[in-house]
Design a protein around this nucleic acid. Sequence first.
DNA 1: TATAGTGTAATAGTAAAATATAACACTAGG
DNA 2: CCTAGTGTTATATTTTACTATTACACTATA
Lengths: 125, 125
Amino acid sequence: MKFDDKVPIYYQIKNYLYHEMLTGTLNPGDKLPAVRQLAVDLTVNVNTVQRALSEMITEGTIESQRGKGNFVTADTTRLAQLKEQLVMTQLAQVYEQLHALNLTDEEIIASLKRYIEQKGAGQNA
Amino acid sequence: MKFDDKVPIYYQIKNYLYHEMLTGTLNPGDKLPAVRQLAVDLTVNVNTVQRALSEMITEGTIESQRGKGNFVTADTTRLAQLKEQLVMTQLAQVYEQLHALNLTDEEIIASLKRYIEQKGAGQNA
DNA sequence: TATAGTGTAATAGTAAAATATAACACTAGG
DNA sequence: CCTAGTGTTATATTTTACTATTACACTATA
């Protein structure tokens, strides 16, 4: 897996797993790949995987069972909260950044629309 | 100044200076504060400031005159390009993140609108 | 009870960012 | 010429993320 060297790998692993958990690749209650397998898949050290998982366990989004494996929480409410939080975090970030560049609310929305349109125009498929 | 420990300080200094340059605090051709003064203001080491400045000099957004100071480029075209690039980078980032969470183009736009409305509703002033 | 598969943790080493400190190079003004 | 203000560079040190490696703890099963 390719990582952005501007942000810690363990942090990017969390986002990767969030993505898997929120888009159906990993469903509530599902067992995650073994930590050693994840390390291989992501070409990363076991300890780095473990660091990401530890934080997620603390957050309650995954649950650990020693000797068995790590499991996506079966608490769908918590997963819904997680998704909402991730979306809000993203929105808050763009909004603040663009607002800081003196774009008005309307300009921010307009620029996003424009971006999406242009993106679609550039598609080949 | 407060920094996010998830991303290098020199990188955040670049963004700080970009902000000053694109919102009128620092105008085209303006002299920047002395590197040692910036270091004090940002409670950061001179070398860290210098690292940020070096990259910006390479990019052509600021120009260095040894013995005199660092200056915002007088090339307003380049500054406009910089702003456009920063905006696009931000938009691309949210879009990809939210798209990765299975939000459609319409949902992305709608969620941004909703965020802005709610933000306004929460204002005290 | 042995073994394979799992999570967990500790140790030691490497690399990058940031710091503290000092020195060097150039400019302007007395 | 000297000095103060500026950018630039270098060295040594600390901190943090990451890696490599090893060991320990628990579960299931042959």
